[in-house]
Design a protein around this nucleic acid. Structure first.
Length: 643
RNA sequence: GCCGAAGUGGCGCAAUGGUAGCGCAAGCGAUUUGUAAUCGCUAGGUUGGGGGUUCGAAUCCCCCCUUCGGCUCCA
């Protein structure tokens, strides 16, 4: 994020409207919260209208058979039905329970409840058991349609359901009934409870009713559900495996970084090894930016209040800013963004149309207040370094500049081996909170859309997801649990040029306002490194590995030769260490494996005599003894190719 | 910020009202070893912080801090 005002102007929750929104605002499955967490994403599937699900006596005769459906659709139905069965179980335990919604999600389902007491993990087996009984009883799911009036009577006392009923545009609403349990629901479901497959209740979490912070907080129970017990087990196993590649754990084990909560949560301390990786990325970043026509700048970390009032941050972004510090009786603020500074650099001279585009990049460290509950390792911190840039350009240059940002982004993500990322086009909605003219917005949104279309990257439209000052393209990378984290962002800004009166002299000699584009490609180095660590499970490719080779002398008498081997590699620009501990070679190999060092160079009598090293790779592959020159050339080649 | 769970040596864990232990890591010593853990010894904790109950608190109660999983918000 490079622009301002997101906090207040991102719209009501910024939920994914548009592409991911399903029709209607019905109960379970009708409307979803945000598409966000891993396995917590609403399933995407075509809405199945009532016309496709005919009513039958048993609610089954005319429905498509479960087996004939796609796996995706079948799972969605089972998950949705499991949510109903779970709701029934919870209601049987708490007759006064008020029901929220209970949709299927990527890996299972959830249901939200308003209950008289907090649920605990001890409740899970009880609920599960009730569910299994209901599944064993194998009763049919029956769809019904009733008038809204009838529905209001049926759901009297169910405040949340009543709210949903009022929002349904049709005269009739659909219900799904199994056994004595009935829910306001558009469906579709499986035919019988017995068709609900392998599931496990996972956890309870708080969730605001309809995702709004001002609404009551309900208790949400998450469950996982798959076709078979094996697939369920595999999924649960995968969740455990994910812990092994959690960047917070790897950060400690690989000695990359630490946090010191007692001295400030959300503030990263980079250790030498993590610092090494970061430096490599920064060097690469700088080199590529120069190559791509950017200038690299540095700006201060604090600025006077007048800067932030002019920029609008004090009006629109104060909630994310830290309290001012007093400097000679003046208020100074720690910067939450770099843009106002870059604008000053732009404005330090008269700019001609010939000077544009001006591309100003900075690894700019910013500080933002993040609410305590949202901090998350490196992925959400309070101080971070954006790989920020601001592009000032003429109207005729806009499209190419945006296109080159997208190409540059793709180049970086490829360089780091990312295949799995989600692109979003965030547009404005009907509200009137936006800066800039509608024409500007239409133009900018059109350009962004054209550029992504032409890039061939699949994307979703996040209607209303734009910040108040302009539309944007965002790219989100996935962590090990499949949670999305916004990294790349390319944003138009129709606010700041106006506020700071940014100009250039046009061909006609008159002052004109340039277009301003904020962009961060990696996003922030902290977040990017966090995602990257999980992406590689800590086993960085050679060019990024903090220690590229570990020389392992077999006995103390080989230490001297080991040091000379290390010196030769270091001379060739490789990062190498020697394990001189009085340990057995096996222990040293194990240590290197655990540290995920790519190359292990084992040296004993044979190697010292022949001027070689026996090479073991992190993969376990034994390359046998190699002349040092060959080791060096092999490694240098691997580094050059960023493999 | 909200809901729930949790905080015990650097890390992973045990001790559920009665003297805080174990493994790994660390330090020291021995060993000099051929592709994922050599052996021994030593040191290390006012149990996240503060208050309370009790003869006695890691354990029970209250407040705060932090972490984890969600929600909301965002790079």
């Amino acid at each position: 994020m490079a622009g301002g005002g997101a906090a207040r102007h991102a719209g009501a929750g910024g939920a994914l409207r548009g592409a991911r929104r399903r029709r209607g605002a019905l109960g379970p499955g009708g409307r979803y919260g945000r598409a966000r967490a891993g396995g917590r994403r609403p399933v995407r599937r075509p809405a199945l209208g009532p016309q496709q699900v005919h009513r039958g006596q048993e609610g089954s005769l005319m429905k498509p058979k479960l087996e004939s459906l796609s796996k995706e659709e079948r799972l969605a139905r089972m998950r949705h039905s499991a949510a109903h069965v779970m709701a029934e179980a919870v209601v049987s335990m708490f007759p006064d329970a008020k029901l929220g919604i209970g949709p299927p999600i990527d890996t299972g389902f959830y249901y939200d409840f308003d209950l008289p007491r907090p649920l605990s993990t001890e409740d899970m087996p009880v609920i599960e058991e009730k569910m299994r009984q209901r599944i064993a009883s194998d009763v049919p799911f029956v769809q019904e349609e009733i008038s809204k009036d009838e529905a209001r009577k049926l759901f009297a006392g169910q405040a949340y359901k009543l709210e949903l009923i009022e929002e349904i545009p049709d005269k009739e609403v659909t219900l799904y009934r199994h056994g004595d349990f009935v829910d306001l629901c558009q469906g579709p479901h499986v035919e019988r409870t017995g068709q609900v497959a392998a599931f496990r209740l996972l956890n309870v979490a708080g969730a605001y009713w309809r995702g709004h912070e001002r609404n009551p907080m309900l208790q949400r129970i998450y469950g996982a559900l798959f076709d078979t017990a094996e697939e369920l087990e595999a999924h649960l196993h995968q969740l455990e495996e994910a812990q092994r590649r959690d960047h917070r754990r790897l950060g400690r084990e690989l000695d990359l970084f630490s946090f010191h909560e007692e001295f400030g949560p959300g503030l990263v301390y980079w250790h030498p090894k993590g610092g090494r990786v970061r430096t490599i990325i920064e060097d690469f970043w700088r080199q590529e930016h120069y190559r791509h026509g950017y200038d690299v700048v540095y700006s201060p970390h604090i600025g006077k209040a007048t800067l932030w009032s002019t920029s609008g941050h004090l009006d629109f972004y104060t909630e994310s800013m830290y309290s001012p510090m007093d400097v000679d009786g003046q208020d100074y603020y720690l910067k939450p963004m770099n843009c106002p500074f870059h604008i000053q650099i732009y404005k330090s001279g008269l700019r001609s149309y010939r000077d544009l585009p001006i591309r100003m990049a900075e690894l700019g460290t910013v500080y933002r207040y993040e609410r305590s509950g949202v901090l998350h390792g490196l992925l959400r911190v309070r101080g971070f370094t954006q790989d920020d840039a601001h592009i000032f350009c003429r109207p005729d240059q806009v499209k190419e500049e945006i296109a080159s940002c997208v190409r540059f982004m793709t180049f970086f993500l490829n360089a780091f081996g990312f295949k799995d990322f989600h692109v979003y086009l965030s547009t404005r909605d009907a509200s009137a909170k936006y800066a800039g003219s509608l024409e500007d917005w239409d133009m900018a949104t059109g350009v962004l859309r054209e550029v992504i279309d032409e890039s061939g990257l699949p994307y979703d439209v996040d209607e209303g997801g734009a910040v108040f000052y302009g539309p944007k393209i965002d790219v989100k990378l996935l962590d090990t649990l499949g949670r999305e984290w916004q990294c790349t962002t390319v944003q138009f800004d129709f606010n700041m040029p106006e506020r700071f009166d940014v100009k250039y002299i046009g061909e006609d000699g008159r002052e004109r306002q340039p277009y301003m584009v904020h962009r961060a490609l990696l996003g922030s180095l902290e977040r990017f490194l966090g995602v990257l660590i999980e992406h590689y499970a800590g086993a960085f490719p050679l060019w990024l590995a903090p220690v590229q080779a570990l020389v392992i002398p077999i006995a103390d008498r080989h230490n001297e030769y080991a040091r000379s081997v290390a010196a030769q590699l270091a001379e060739a620009g490789l990062r190498v260490e020697v394990d001189e501990r009085s340990e057995r070679m096996q222990a040293k190999v194990r240590g290197a494996q655990l540290q995920k060092v790519p190359y292990m160079l084992i040296v004993g009598d044979k190697e010292a005599g022949a001027g070689t090293a026996s090479v073991r790779l992190r993969t376990g592959e034994d390359l046998g003894p190699m002349p040092l020159a060959n080791v060096v050339s092999r490694m240098r080649e691997e580094v050059a190719e960023k493999r």
